[in-house]
């Protein structure tokens, strides 16, 4: 569970670019730059609890879950069990997708099937807490049908990805 030097330096460069964008915005449009900064701080405040969950899961994975077990439940030959875990995990995961990147890339390094990761990402578009709101805007029938197709599409995409992406591809 380590972050490579390439990943670290890319992160630093990206942060420098974003800081430069803020400085440019502050120079030409200070009000909007301030507004953007406040919005970012509010995002940071909102994601803090999810970060704690991610930290806990990463610790748990590293301490107690053997790679063979992960491979058995989420590897290329995990079958229906694996797809069920990926879809269920995707639907139940909270917070922005990028918060789940570290744990998913770690799981991938431990042999989790790429198709299951792709399915997890797509299943995340079923946002359980927001379903009542979606139903109030677009109707119950629309919400049920869309949810069904999202889960179906998650599995199809996972199957396609399994064929296209070689295991552990980081090219």
């Amino acid at each position: 569970m380590t972050v490579s030097e390439r990943e670290k330096s890319f992160g630093r460069i990206l942060l420098l670019i974003v800081i430069s964008l803020y400085l440019l915005a502050a120079l030409f449009d200070p009000a909007s730059a301030g507004q953007a900064l406040m919005k970012s701080l509010s995002v940071l405040k909102n994601i803090a609890p999810v970060l704690l969950i991610v930290l806990f899961l990463m610790t748990l994975l590293s301490a107690y879950i053997q790679p063979q077990k992960i491979f058995h439940y989420l590897g290329r030959k995990s079958g229906l069990k694996g797809w069920g875990i990926a879809l269920g995990g995707g639907v139940l995961s909270h917070g922005p997708g990028y918060l789940w990147y570290p744990i998913l890339s770690d799981l991938r390094a431990r042999g989790v099937n790429e198709g299951l990761i792709v399915a997890f990402f797509y299943a995340r578009s079923v946002k359980v807490p927001w379903l009542p709101m979606m139903a109030s805007y677009f109707g119950i029938a629309f919400t049920v049908i869309l949810t069904f197709y999202i889960l179906l599409a998650a599995v199809i995409q996972g199957k396609i990805a399994e064929k296209i992406i070689p295991p552990q591809s980081t090219i």
């Binding site: 569970m1 380590t2 670290k8 992160g11 990206l14 995002v43 940071l44 930290l55 610790t59 918060l99």
Partner: peptide
């Protein structure tokens, strides 16, 4: 395990902050 997880998240902090900064923009 906790130290390793904290280390990983710490290494990813610049990238995470950059993405959050972009979200605000």
């Amino acid at each position: 395990a906790l130290k390793a997880a904290l280390g990983t998240l710490y290494s990813m902090t610049p990238m995470l902050l950059a993405v959050i900064g972009l979200v605000g923009l």
